[in-house]
Write a protein that binds this DNA or RNA. Structure first.
Length: 559
RNA sequence: UGACCUAUGGUGUAAUGGUAGCACUCCGGUUUUUGGUAUCGUCAGUCAAGGUUCGAGUCCUUGUAGGUCAACCA
């Protein structure tokens, strides 16, 4: 066995360097810090796989920490969904924690900062403060309240905490440097008044800490060694370090923030705000609509955790902007399902075939493997009778040699059954073929071992017996957007690129063995693609989602 | 007219001063009772210009292009 040397990504490189410089392996600790204000998507999966993957690689704990400092947007529903998604992806956290666990500690530290003259209460409006903030190219100016006495600041901050002030009237600010080249260092807000009910702390607080003040301190409290986030937080790093330095005890580990590029996928959008918009405006049917790039949407669509993990690993991480081809994601799920999904037969666009030399009331149950090319899948009986359905596109009255499906006077193999020959067809007033009359070769049954069964016939078709067929609703999905980067246009709104045909609902016929299939059972519909049972399935209505179609070289040739 | 980050085939990523590799996509061959799978192969890349070096995708300089930063969001 040759040991394949796998190169390290740049985050692993940083960790290896830290280890080489004396950080002991047992100090390694990571966290995944979602804000519970929306559902997780495939971009988050990159972060989840990265952080939990590092935990696995270095045998280090990984916390799931909800960054819940803004009660105006956050809800328990999201907390629950996020936990479910992380677990479904196959990862095990060390602890579930909440930034809100640290509200008291954060408050106490804030009081210390005030006492040290490093924080002050500002009474201005946000507009006034924005004006003083300057711009990236112009320095800011000091607030008139910047030099209040410690006593006054302490008194005001207590009154903020006690609910004496209305929202928007007072904030606590760190006193850093209004002329700093990094705007985040220009006296950032630490606390604002928010008289909102919090999903965990209820009405205990009416002041809430801001992200920057909370995040680094939370990392420090949990002794996170490497706090990994996305690139847009790069310029927050100065502040992160400044805040940590205010409370840092040198006997403890000092966490460090490092940033990587968020993962984008072609033909979709990845911002929570935009996804929420699609949900709220009814473009899709909820966060778990199978067209959504959310984890729950992909799950419902039929994706497996393993495929998503493989995708994340294969796509890798770096620090440059990217748009990963959705074909890579599709490749990962096809590759997984090809190895795991049983093969069954379903006809999505049926036309009736009558086998004229097959007895009227005869029926047979043919043994059909769930997978002809792999062990362990077993088989099931598939009913055959005089009338069957095949796909409309699998028949042509006449066609050239390249079309090796059913055509008049030519033969094809019916998968798991007999070789048939088309003799004639019936058409309606529009010239549409409504029925095809065939004869079958009685000795040609698949697997019978007879001479006739071994005959080489170019085409093989899938089919379903008419009188045994189960009706099923099949939801055929296409990409949600027609543009590769729908939100990459400065002059156009992403919604202008919504694909009007992203959902096609079909009344199909499936083989009877599928009658008892359960939610999330995954199958390959022979020659068509991979499908899974949707949660909308009821006793009387079987519903399948098309996860992804099979590669179709014939369709490409036809173009 | 600032600071910071990033530039490698169509896409995503390796190469840690020493043969530019892998995966996906595309295209073609072989196999095939799925026009699937498998397998073999083709096309295709270091942003530019200087410099350092025996040797530069990698280091330096200067450009160019893209991105980020001015929420009481995270």
């Amino acid at each position: 066995m040759s040991e394949e040397k796998k190169s390290l990504n740049f985050i692993e490189q940083i960790i290896e360097d830290d280890l080489a410089n004396g950080l002991s392996n047992d100090k390694l600790r990571f966290r995944f810090p979602p804000e519970p204000n929306g559902y997780l998507h495939i971009g988050h999966a990159a972060s989840i796989c990265l952080n939990f993957g590092l935990g696995l690689k270095y045998n280090a704990p990984v916390n799931l920490r909800f960054d819940d400092t803004n009660p105006a947007k956050e809800e328990q529903e999201y907390v629950d969904a996020i936990q479910q998604d992380v677990q479904w992806l196959g990862f095990q956290w060390d602890k579930v924690l909440y930034s809100s666990d640290y509200f008291q500690q954060l408050f106490d530290w804030a009081v210390e900062l005030i006492k040290e003259g490093k924080a002050y209460v500002d009474d201005q409006t946000s507009e006034e403060m924005a004006k003083q903030k300057g711009t990236p190219t112009e320095v800011g100016t000091n607030s008139p309240f910047r030099d209040r006495s410690v006593e006054e600041n302490l008194d005001l901050f207590m009154r903020m905490k006690n609910g004496e002030f209305d929202e928007g009237t007072h904030v606590l600010r760190a006193k850093i440097d209004m002329e700093h080249v990094n705007m985040h260092m220009r006296d950032p807000i630490m606390y604002r008044v928010l008289k909102k009910h919090h999903h965990r702390t209820g009405n205990d607080w009416c002041i809430y800490p801001m992200y920057d003040w909370t995040h680094g301190e939370s990392d420090y409290l949990e002794q996170i060694s490497h706090s990994i986030c996305t690139l847009e937080f790069k310029s927050h790093r100065d502040l992160y370090d400044w805040y940590v330095d205010q409370v840092y005890d040198t006997s403890l580990l000092r966490p460090k923030q490092r940033e990587f590029a968020r993962r984008n996928l072609s033909y979709t959008v990845m911002s929570k705000r935009k996804l929420l918009q699609l949900v709220e405006e009814g473009v899709v049917n909820g966060w778990d609509d199978p067209r959504m790039p959310t984890i729950s949407g992909l799950r419902r669509r039929g994706y497996t955790p393993s495929a998503i993990r493989t995708f994340s690993d294969t796509a890798g991480i770096s620090k440059r902007d990217n748009v990963t081809d959705v074909a890579l994601l599709e490749h990962c799920i096809k590759d997984d399902l090809n190895k795991t999904a049983p093969r069954v037969m379903a006809v999505l666009d049926p036309v009736k075939v009558v086998i004229t030399n097959y007895p009227e009331d005869k029926e047979e149950f043919l043994d059909a493997n769930y997978n002809d090319y792999a062990e362990g899948f077993g088989s099931r009986p598939v009913p055959f009778s005089r009338e069957i359905y095949i796909e409309k596109e699998d028949f042509r009255e006449q066609a050239n040699k390249k079309f090796f499906r059913l055509k008049l006077d030519k033969e094809v193999r019916l998968k798991n059954a007999y070789i048939i020959k088309a003799n004639s067809c019936v058409k309606d007033e529009n010239g549409e073929v409504t029925e095809i009359h065939c004869t079958y070769d009685e000795d040609s049954l698949s697997g019978s071992g007879s001479e006739a069964s071994k005959r080489k016939v170019k085409g093989t078709l899938h089919w379903v017996s008419v009188k045994h067929a189960e009706k099923a609703e099949v939801r055929v999905y296409d990409r949600l957007f027609t543009d590769e980067a729908p939100d990459g246009h400065k002059d156009k709104d992403f919604k202008e690129f919504i694909n009007p045909d992203s959902l096609n609902v079909i009344n199909a016929f499936v083989e009877p063995s599928l009658k008892d299939a359960k939610e999330l059972d995954r199958f390959q519909f022979q020659r068509l693609g991979y499908f899974c049972v949707d949660k909308d399935t009821t006793e009387s209505n079987l519903v399948f989602n098309r996860t992804v179609p099979l590669r179709d070289s014939w369709a490409k040739m036809e173009k």
